[in-house]
Amino acid sequence: MNKIKKFLLNLLAVLVCALYLFPIYIVIVNSFKNRAELYEDMLALPSKFSFEFYEKAMKKMEFLKAFGNSFIVTGISILCIVILAAMTAWMLVRVDNMFSRILFMTFVATMLIPFQTLMMPLMQVMGWIRDTLHIPMIDTLGGLIYMNIGFGASMAVFLYHGFIKSIPVSLEEAATIDGCNKFQTFFKIVFPMLKPTTVTVIILDVIWIWNDYLLPSLVISQKNLRTIPLSTASFFGQFTIQWNLAMAGLTLTIIPVIIFYLLAQKHIIKGVAAGAVK
């Protein structure tokens, strides 16, 4: 009876995995088909596997330029989020007063606000900053990075805040006795111990920022500043949609994230285990 139950559970797990991976199968298979094959049978394998449509997709979406823009935006945004959020959470934990608790709850509360309710006021404020203070916040990668840092800070502070509570204060006191100032204590003692949480924050933010379409579509209008999600929109015209090229472009978009996730997944497991033990 137990063997039958185990077999049924395994079968159910396989079916759920197949159902979850089915959209990925559709995207990859149809990226190798011409338009006639795609409309004839969307589920069938292509008659031949050729990277012809990948070459066309890369040329149409200016993949290398878009990849560079996405890499710059994602890399700088995550670097700033990790450092600033870790420092903020550390001070909120160590300076335990009413103001710190109110500030932390404010960070948590902002996680509950949907971006769609903020996007129009956000663009108005950024337009005012551009026109009045003459700081380029719209149609620049710097402005997009600045907004990503703001929207990504809350979750990062929340994650770091819980982990820092498990770090003994005695370690920091010993570093202070040895002559370390606040910055040295943080970067040499505290920050290295936050590695599991840091990797988790990086992975979550890479997936979010790399695949984000809505915020860049509001901020960026110049073609040479488009990120990869924006460049994939070039396949969707007003009257026609080049589905095979779009599928190839989407495949190219998700490959870097998958590679990054596979390289970092062992750190996720360590982070979950460390958090469970502590």
Rank of each mutant, 00 (worst) to 15 (best):
N2V: 08
L8V: 13
L9Y: 08
A13R: 12
L15R: 09
V16I: 15
V16N: 09
C17D: 10
A18F: 13
Y20Q: 14
L21H: 12
L21A: 15
P23G: 13
P23W: 11
I26F: 15
I28Y: 09
S31A: 15
A36V: 12
E37P: 04
E37H: 04
L38H: 13
L38M: 11
D41G: 02
L43A: 12
L43H: 01
L45C: 01
S47D: 00
S47M: 00
S47H: 00
S50F: 00
F51S: 09
F51H: 01
F53M: 13
F53C: 07
F53I: 10
Y54Q: 07
E55P: 00
M58V: 07
L64T: 08
K65F: 02
N69M: 00
F71S: 15
I72V: 15
S77N: 07
C80W: 04
C80A: 14
I81K: 03
A85I: 08
A89T: 09
L92E: 05
S100E: 03
S100F: 03
R101K: 15
F104V: 08
T106L: 13
T106C: 12
V108L: 12
M111T: 05
I113P: 02
P114V: 14
P121N: 06
M123N: 05
Q124I: 14
D131G: 11
T132W: 04
T132N: 13
H134C: 09
P136W: 01
M137A: 08
T140S: 11
L141A: 02
L141I: 07
G142E: 04
G143W: 03
G143K: 01
G143R: 01
G143N: 03
L144F: 01
L144K: 02
I149R: 01
F151V: 06
F151G: 03
A153T: 06
S154Y: 02
A156P: 05
G162Y: 01
I164F: 02
V169C: 05
S170K: 10
L171S: 10
L171V: 12
E173R: 08
A175Q: 06
D178P: 03
D178H: 11
G179F: 06
F183K: 03
Q184I: 10
Q184L: 11
F187T: 14
I189V: 15
I189N: 08
P192H: 07
P192A: 10
M193V: 14
M193I: 14
L194H: 07
T198S: 14
V199A: 13
V199Q: 02
V199P: 01
V206N: 03
V206C: 11
I207W: 02
N211I: 10
Y213C: 09
S217I: 04
S221E: 05
Q222T: 06
Q222S: 11
K223S: 11
L225N: 00
I228D: 05
P229H: 09
L230G: 04
F236C: 15
F236K: 10
F236S: 15
G237F: 01
I241A: 14
W243F: 15
L245Y: 07
A246S: 11
A246I: 11
G249P: 02
L250V: 13
L250W: 05
L250G: 14
T253E: 12
I258S: 08
F260W: 06
Y261N: 04
L263V: 14
A264Y: 02
Q265M: 06
I268D: 04
V272Y: 04
A274F: 05
G275I: 02
A276V: 08
K278E: 11
